[in-house]
């Protein structure tokens, strides 16, 4: 039991200060940002629009493409080389897969919805921030979504269960660390993303996912308030 207190003083089940805003990119069809402390994600949605190349078109429903991109000087470590990498490709894929269960594109055959996630500043938990922003942007674009997906990373630092790991915890030198990003559909409690890096005992995993679900409900409330804030006062008479 050596990990007793978090570097920034918050409780083990608390997230970093969060902020969400909808409609931040004027020319996009839908946009939003979501911030976990120093991890900032901006998402822009374009579409539905005709998909080219043509062989990628699906005549039964529209497809979703996500593009995750960390900006060159966004992280605390070395400069991120611009352009795609193995890592960004994987995160783009899991982001799309975590959003698809709630997204209904059956009304848009042969078309595509593009989601661009840009991260100007990152300090752990970037894929979760990206998913939170993208879920908001999809709803802002007026697409049919059953719910707004909320995501957070949970884990275990040494033998302490924690929610929303920051960079110092993710790279904690004096013990084992498990980093588990999860995404959840708040209305049903179903999980759409569950990944893990590190090792954790089985019963701790179950416990920490429950902590994560609780955090997701909090995030979901923040997301919905942000969405409502943009459209507040748009009641038609």
């Amino acid at each position: 039991m050596s990990y007793k207190e978090r570097a920034d003083g918050r409780k083990f089940e608390d997230c970093r200060p969060m902020e969400a805003k909808v409609g931040v990119i004027k020319r996009a069809d839908g946009s939003a940002y979501f911030k976990f402390g120093n991890t900032w994600a901006y998402a822009a949605v374009y579409g539905p629009r005709t998909l080219f190349p043509r062989f990628m078109q699906n005549p039964t429903k529209g497809i979703l493409r996500c593009h995750y991109n960390m900006m060159p000087f966004s992280s605390v470590g070395e400069r991120v080389r611009p352009g795609g990498s193995r890592r960004s490709k994987e995160i783009s894929m899991v982001t799309a897969k975590s959003l698809l269960p709630v997204l209904d594109l059956s009304a848009y055959p042969n078309s595509v919805v593009d989601v661009f996630i840009e991260l100007p500043s990152t300090e752990a938990g970037s894929r979760c921030a990206g998913i939170n922003a993208a879920a908001l942007a999809l709803a802002d674009a007026g697409l049919k979504v059953k719910d707004i997906v909320a995501a957070v990373s949970v884990g275990r630092v040494d033998d302490q269960l924690v929610v929303d790991l920051d960079y110092t915890e993710e790279s904690y030198p004096e013990g084992h660390v498990a980093d588990i990003p999860i995404a959840m559909v708040p209305s049903t409690g179903k999980i759409t993303l569950l990944q893990m890096d590190g090792i954790i005992p089985k019963d701790d995993l179950v416990k920490v996912v429950e902590l994560g679900k609780k955090a997701c409900m909090e995030i979901s409330k923040l997301q919905k308030d942000a969405l409502r804030a943009k459209y507040a006062g748009s009641e038609k008479k």
Binding site: A139, V145, K146, D147, S187, K224, Y231, A232, E235
Partner: peptide, 10 residues
């Protein structure tokens, strides 16, 4: 009637 709702609202 005329309330603003977001996806997932009951």
């Amino acid at each position: 009637d005329k309330d603003i709702v977001v996806p997932g609202d009951k």
